[in-house]
Design a protein around this nucleic acid. Structure first.
Lengths: 258, 258
DNA sequence: GCTGGGAGAGGCTTA
DNA sequence: TAAGCCTTTCCCAGC
């Protein structure tokens, strides 16, 4: 057990130095802002970061039970309690953590830099696909990528061998209702813009049954994208398509990051 | 600095006991699963929880840079390194944290209970609304809520004073494209099911410009919802509707297309 | 620098 | 188990 007075001083020092501070103790939590929540007394880990973000973790799940960002942090001693307060405006938010006992407190000096994450995301897949759209369908030629429309951002626009406009929506995960309606929105935009009919292809590793039904009703097409993620390699290339079969629709994606 | 051998033992003990374990040290991270990502060496906090979830935190932002859930955890000593591995299937995911130095390690006994009380959720709003639908419009009577359709779950179905079916989609935050298309899907379901025309109302604190445009094109209505989040304990009520304002009174009955 | 728009992913709930 | 959907987000582009 650590004295609350001492805890207060340590938190203040840590916050000032932009350290990462961990406090483990018995506390209750009140949050008011975009939602309202009350957390009864319990033992939890409070994580204070160098950018003044605070998160309260219980002993399960990845996401914190409560959190706040970009707030002004202050400490306040009461009758056998220590209140850790964070408040911000726009939008107005208030987080109050009331400690009745602190089991442990640690302060770690740590860089504030944003960790560089080298990842294979939808963007990489998108780029890899743009290298050779003919893998989706022979004769398919790219026209534009990530074109901004008023009703969303379209992944890929292409033209098929017969000169038809083709709108392609790419999903890394199983496609759902939202994916289908997104594609439909882009299609409408393209059709209205150009005054012509367009084809729409949803490209994803899978699609939910009911979503597929909706897709069919809307006259859109689905193309299964069976890709494989591989560990990073060493040449400067980010993503490379190894192959795709129209029947089995298999794309092997190799991610290589320098 | 803590010896890696000692770290390994402590992590294994902590995981077994379902403690919350924190490890602060220099590490690199490789993740393979929903995406593929590599995090270069850096000082970070690794949080291991009693449900076997692992998250890696940098000194900024609430969200962890990497995480995994429901995985099998193991430790492995190498040449001057300690590898903390987590792997799971369905879907296949692998997370490997390679420590080259450990500054601190803590293990805290902590309950696994989940005790957050959140109020002001959409569910609360829904309940508050169902108490008196006439707030939306005089003479509106509830028929059903959370009705399951083939293409989604409809928040509220009601009947207006003229006997028209009214489909209501409720959002606790600014409505967007998805909100509009959701409402549209439910409308179609209702209309196909009953073979009649229905009205559709989107109920939200606000609506995005483009989403509103789409709403208008589809002949749907928007109703601004002004609500207040109430603190806990007050007669069990979690949300209170302050007011409802019809932005545009659009009666679409005469727009029926045969 | 702030703000609005859009897409994303964890986690809950019900069938 | 799967499907549907909600959310205290986060990024990015435009002002």
């Amino acid at each position: 057990m650590i004295e609350l007075v001492e805890t207060k001083a340590a938190i203040e020092r840590g916050v000032l130095a932009k350290h990462m501070v961990t406090v483990v103790g018995r506390c209750s939590v009140d949050y008011f802002g975009r939602a309202t929540s009350t957390l009864p007394s319990g033992k939890r880990l409070v994580l204070i970061k160098g950018d003044n973000s605070i998160s309260i973790h219980q002993n399960r799940l990845v996401r914190p039970t409560n959190y706040i960002m970009g707030a002004r942090i202050s400490c306040e001693l009461g009758e056998g309690t220590l209140k850790l307060k964070a408040a911000k405006t726009k939008p107005a938010e208030r987080l109050t953590i009331t400690f009745t006992g602190v089991h442990d407190l640690r302060s770690y000096e740590m860089e504030l830099t944003d960790d560089l994450r080298l990842s294979g995301s939808e963007r990489d897949l998108n780029e890899a696909l743009m290298q050779d759209l003919s893998m989706i369908e022979p004769g398919l030629k790219p026209i534009n990528q990530q074109q901004h429309f008023r009703k969303g951002i379209c992944d890929i626009i292409a033209q098929d061998k017969d000169g038809n406009m083709v709108v392609i929506e790419l999903k890394r995960r199983q496609a759902d209702f939202d994916s289908v309606t997104q594609l439909q929105r882009y299609m409408r935009e393209v059709e209205n813009l150009k005054g012509i009919k367009a084809r729409g292809i949803l490209l994803a590793p899978g699609i939910r049954k009911n979503a597929k039904e909706l897709l069919g009703q809307l006259g859109l097409e689905f193309c299964r994208l069976d890709f494989e993620l591989t560990p990073h390699g060493k040449d400067g290339q980010k993503a490379r398509i190894k192959g795709l079969e129209r029947k089995q629709q298999t794309i092997m994606q190799h991610l290589k990051v320098g």
